[in-house]
Design a protein around this nucleic acid. Structure first.
Length: 371
RNA sequence: GCGGAUGUGGUGAAGUGGUUAACACAUUGGAUUGUGGUUCCAACAUGCGUGGGUUCGAUUCCCACCAUCCGUC
């Protein structure tokens, strides 16, 4: 079945909304944060650990799984869920972002994007049809359109051509989509140009997608610019379909997104920061490598209910990180993802009780606005 | 006692008669937003064992001393 979005409550002060998203692998409340597992693994975490922190949808990446191990291997395994033994919902990103992140080796044409494999240098052509075919085989619950995520900044003319092409690609994605059991989301682009955002949203919404994403954000633009990008696109999206803000996961950005009507977020930030020794806390992000934690035997975040915070000290994690022990990275990954998931849990409660702004203000006050 | 070698930042270690003494590790900060999993950026020796001498100028050349290591009695 396709995902089904049921709006249950809209915040009285803002565009924040509380809903239930039914998927092939369970029903989940939104707004939600999705953790990223590019190569069919949320780095450092087991499916069991994901379940313990109340993780719902996770991401996997078409481009990466295409190159390794190959979509057929996963299809033969019985699909991505069986392959990685994860029974929650999985969303696959289309490879569109790699057009941006692997910018050194790309050649974009109407047909698709010519990549140079980061693994062995092979020249590979990823097209909308190919991306969808791969995602069909991976058998994720939600597939994403193959889009172009241009860098920031880029000229108006370039962005206009890019947006128009991404819309043509969106149609090709729909036309080639075969998996009846899989949902397909369209992606709004347009950079910071209001009319292009609007055009992209209006044209994409005409197409029969199961949900809509806002892409092209968090590519180096200022925060205010990003918030404007969201606003310019989101007002054209239907209220009965899920809205996904791609690649955003800074704690404060979650609030800003929810406030503007976003239902789903994903971000590598919690796991990447964890691997580099940083932890989210209610009082802001901290760097556990800092010398001041050498003999700090308090929990990373005393308010947190995760395995790390309930059992270990800052001094211990600091030691593990400095000694390059992967256990430290695991503990921080668990904590950072749990931290964002917990924020979303609290946000949902706040929306239901019509006090989203109150909770947001309280969070900002403690967290500080520097990060 | 004698013979030989070496003495450069926390460590290992380049280097040169002349502006700011490489580099690596460690240390100390910072970065990170649809992940190319030990990443990227920055700071860190007013001084090259000590004291003299030569020189316009010495960490670099000379002398003495001290220290360490090796060999030997």
């Amino acid at each position: 079945m396709k995902v089904k979005y049921t709006l249950l409550h809209k915040d009285k002060d803002t565009n924040a909304r509380y809903a239930i998203l039914d998927t092939n692998h369970g029903s989940y409340e939104t707004p939600m944060f999705m953790s990223v597992g590019t190569q069919a693994s949320v780095k450092m975490l087991s499916p069991l650990e994901l379940k313990e922190i109340n993780s719902a949808i996770i991401l996997a990446n078409t481009y990466h799984l295409w190159l390794r191990p190959g979509e057929d291997v996963i299809a033969h395994a019985g699909g991505l869920h069986k392959f990685m033994n994860y029974d929650g919902p999985i969303l696959t990103d289309s490879g569109g972002f790699q057009v941006f992140s692997l910018a050194n080796y790309k050649d974009i044409s109407e047909e698709g994007v010519l990549f140079k494999s980061h693994l062995n240098g092979d020249k590979l052509l990823l097209t909308p049809e190919k991306s969808i075919e791969i995602q069909n085989k991976l058998d994720s619950d939600i597939a994403m359109c193959f889009d172009e995520c241009p860098p920031y900044p880029v000229s108006y003319d370039y962005m206009k051509k890019s947006v128009e092409r991404t819309i043509r690609w969106a149609k090709r994605c729909l036309d080639s989509h075969q998996n009846e059991n899989q949902s397909l989301f369209g992606i709004i682009q347009g950079g910071e140009f209001q009319d292009l955002r609007e055009y992209s949203a209006i044209e994409t919404v005409k197409l029969p997608f199961d949900g809509f994403a806002i892409g092209g954000t968090s590519v180096g633009e200022e925060k205010e610019v990003m918030y404007k990008m969201i606003e310019d696109g989101i007002r054209y999206l239907p209220i009965d379909k899920p809205r996904y803000l791609m690649g955003v996961g800074d704690p404060l950005d979650l609030f800003e997104g929810v406030m503007r009507g976003i239902d789903m977020f994903d971000c590598v930030l919690p796991t990447r920061l964890a691997r580099h020794g940083h932890a989210f806390t209610l009082n802001g992000k901290i760097n556990l490598k800092n010398a001041k934690y050498k003999e700090d035997f308090s929990p990373v975040d005393e308010n947190c209910d995760c395995y790390l915070c309930k059992n270990f000290t800052k001094a211990y994690v600091r030691h593990l990180i400095i000694a390059s022990e992967t256990f430290g990275q695991r503990l921080l990954s668990i904590h950072n993802i749990r931290f964002l998931i917990k924020i979303m849990e609290n946000i949902r409660i706040a929306i239901k009780e019509d006090r989203f702004l109150e909770y947001k203000n309280e969070f900002y006050k403690n967290y500080g606005t520097k990060d």
